[in-house]
Simulated assay, not measured.
Amino acid sequence: MKTVAIISQKGGVGKTTLATALAVAAELDGKSAAVFDLDPQASASFWKDARGKDASPAVVSLQASRLKETLALAAEGGCDIAFIDAPPVAKDIAFEAAEHADFILIPTRPAVLDAAAMDKTLKLIRAFAKPSAVVLTFCPTQGGREIGDTEEAVKQLGATLAPLRIHNRITYSRAQQTGHTAQEFEPEGKAAEEIKHLYDYTCMNLFTQTAEAKNVRRRTA
């Protein structure tokens, strides 16, 4: 089982939206997925309530201290990809999420305060030397100087910038309110296309790196 942690020390950057949308994308890709909701606000769990208890993907609300054991149970149960929705500010929970992740996504709005929070998040997760990428969220659909400034800040911080942007589209919020995701709410829309690109990029980091690591081990054996 592969695990993706979605971490940011800043709230309101779209962590739950990405976690649920990516989990649905994985299910549409023929994989078994689950969302592990570590946020006390339980946004992903409320999304699941609106979606229906029998609908996939599974959403599990739990304390960070139970994450390791719960991930192990999910793997034993046949889960292919787990998405961890971590809360803002809580460093101890973010540490726990990062420790068990194969890949970390750091959503960030294109704004000065969010760039500062991004720096704190990067410092927090670097202790684990895990592959990670910053993804810009809530980007203006007409562009803007703040996008370029934030992308430059990402580069100056030595972080990897995902080669895509999540824009501020009404489809995301409307879908979340009804227990759906962008690709379900408007399958041919631009929001659905953005999530598809993010899912593909995430899978590339999850599975390509695994294959490369195996090849290295074979060559050095």
Rank of each mutant, 00 (worst) to 15 (best):
K190I: 03
Y201G: 03
S132E: 10
L18V: 03
P131H: 14
Q9K: 05
I106F: 01
Q41E: 12
T150A: 06
K68W: 05
H167D: 01
P110Q: 08
D102W: 00
G143P: 12
I81S: 07
F207P: 09
A50K: 13
A133E: 07
A159M: 02
I84Q: 03
L113Q: 15
G14F: 05
S43K: 07
E188N: 11
G12R: 07
Q209H: 12
A117G: 03
P107R: 01
K130W: 09
A82D: 08
F95K: 07
L28H: 11
A55D: 09
A159R: 00
V60K: 04
L73W: 11
A175V: 04
A19Y: 01
K123D: 15
G78K: 08
Q209G: 15
R217A: 10
S132Q: 06
Q63Y: 15
R109I: 14
L62I: 15
V216K: 11
E152L: 04
Y172A: 07
P187D: 13
A97M: 08
F83H: 01
D102K: 05
A117D: 08
A175R: 02
C203M: 04
Q142I: 07
R217Q: 00
R51F: 05
S43T: 13
Q176L: 14
L38T: 06
Q9L: 11
Q142Y: 04
L62W: 13
P110C: 07
Q209E: 14
F83V: 06
T178D: 08
R165W: 11
G144H: 08
L164Y: 00
G77H: 12
T121F: 02
L124T: 08
F207Q: 11
A153Y: 10
Y199L: 12
K2L: 04
S173I: 08
C139E: 01
G158M: 13
A115S: 11
A159S: 05
I84S: 05
M118D: 02
E152V: 08
E152H: 03
T20Q: 03
A101Q: 09
G11H: 03
T137G: 11
L124M: 14
C139M: 07
K123I: 07
D54G: 13
Q177E: 12
Y172P: 07
A5R: 01
R66E: 02
I195P: 00
P88K: 02
A221D: 12
E186K: 03
C79I: 01
R219A: 15
A25W: 04
I7S: 05
T108R: 05
E99Y: 14
F36V: 08
G30R: 05
F36Q: 02
Q176G: 00
V35G: 07
Y172M: 07
F103C: 09
E76Y: 14
T202P: 09
E194K: 01
Y201W: 15
I93K: 02
A33N: 02
I170Y: 06
A42I: 12
R165A: 09
N205P: 01
E146P: 05
L22D: 07
T137S: 02
I166C: 12
R174L: 14
D49A: 13
V35T: 11
D85N: 06
A72Q: 13
G189N: 14
L22G: 01
A75E: 09
T20W: 00
A94M: 10
A117V: 14
V13P: 02
M1V: 12
E212D: 15
R217M: 10
T17M: 11
P163H: 10
T160F: 11
K31L: 15
V60D: 01
M204D: 13
A55Q: 15
